[in-house]
Design a protein around this nucleic acid. Sequence first.
DNA 1: GTCTATACTTGGATAGAC
DNA 2: GTCTATCCAAGTATAGAC
Lengths: 218, 218
Amino acid sequence: MARPGTASRLSSDQATSSAATRQALVEAAIGALRDEGFAGASARSIAARAGCNQGLVFYHFGSVVGLLLAALDEVSELRLARYSTAVGGARGPSELVRVAADIFREDLDAGYVTVLAELIAGASSTPGLGAELAKRLAPWTAFAEQAIRDALVDSPLGTLLSGPTIAHAIVALYLGLDMLTQLEADRRPAESLFAEAQRLAALFEVLSATVPDPKEKP
Amino acid sequence: MARPGTASRLSSDQATSSAATRQALVEAAIGALRDEGFAGASARSIAARAGCNQGLVFYHFGSVVGLLLAALDEVSELRLARYSTAVGGARGPSELVRVAADIFREDLDAGYVTVLAELIAGASSTPGLGAELAKRLAPWTAFAEQAIRDALVDSPLGTLLSGPTIAHAIVALYLGLDMLTQLEADRRPAESLFAEAQRLAALFEVLSATVPDPKEKP
DNA sequence: GTCTATACTTGGATAGAC
DNA sequence: GTCTATCCAAGTATAGAC
């Protein structure tokens, strides 16, 4: 009954085998949430994708929800790293929008945001899940807020907008855009929005140059 | 085996009784989607809410999904009427934003948007559901587009923005905002966003007055 | 650690009594 | 039209063999 992580390593073969199975299950769970949604992400369906037995879900993760949360953790870590490095170099609204659109395009194709959206939707039928998701969502709103602050540091827009509020809206927009894109199986509306946002950001940069920040050195 | 609607009316008692049951089931389905999500909206759970037998779901609506779509139709019709009359009188971005925020507040409290969000999330596990939802979503994006066009008719912003793209983004934002609000059980972030949008809309109105539209009569 | 087998529960759907 | 009874499929979870 020893659980992995608390169990002592008996042999490196067993350890690597266990880790491989865990990883296979996590990746299968991501795929199941993406392709079949929360309602379709059952232990059986996930195990079938992972090519292993259904019982291993409960051995490794305690419950189906436990595995789904592990899947979200994996996706979240992966994407947060990706966004961080990419957005880190962005200067100004226009560049930020371009970079964000590029990575969100990856998200749409890989269904990473869908994993989150399905879990949030599923939370209303699973007591306790909502609180776990809220915890995992916090780093994302914090990240969005920081990215916006950094990109607008030289712009009068920075003092005009409320950071936390806009960050919340961006996260909400990502969620909603992903859901609509999945539903209509059409990425073009999202692409149009990226282009529109890019135009507006460029426009704001011009306006910022016309009416420079008082703190800025001439 | 006659289905209601195709069956001839045998007596007015039976007809009203049937209609009452249908209505009770539809309203129970709305409540179930709102409170228990797609995964929790089973025939048994809905029938229990409606105070009737589980088999009636299949008698009246053919399947659970059939009932859920009827529930969405009810909500959609109800809310589209509400939005239409309220937005119809709005002139200018600022007033449009204020009116839209007021009604969306109702949506959040009553969980109307949640019904849609849960169905979209559930669509990935139910073949054919996605197409039905897409059909029912179209009037909303069309409505949003028209409302924006009307409100911006006297503003240079109208020519600056792409109608269909912004409408799509608004619908996405509504979906995402609702999901986050339900998840965190906290309406304050949404309220902050309403206030922020109101401020920006007012600002745009001032700018529009400063740089009037060339077509406008002086 | 992994698999097979199994207990138990819930849900979709139908048949037939009333 | 509604209810009871029932069938069958699918899901969660555990026990025990390997």
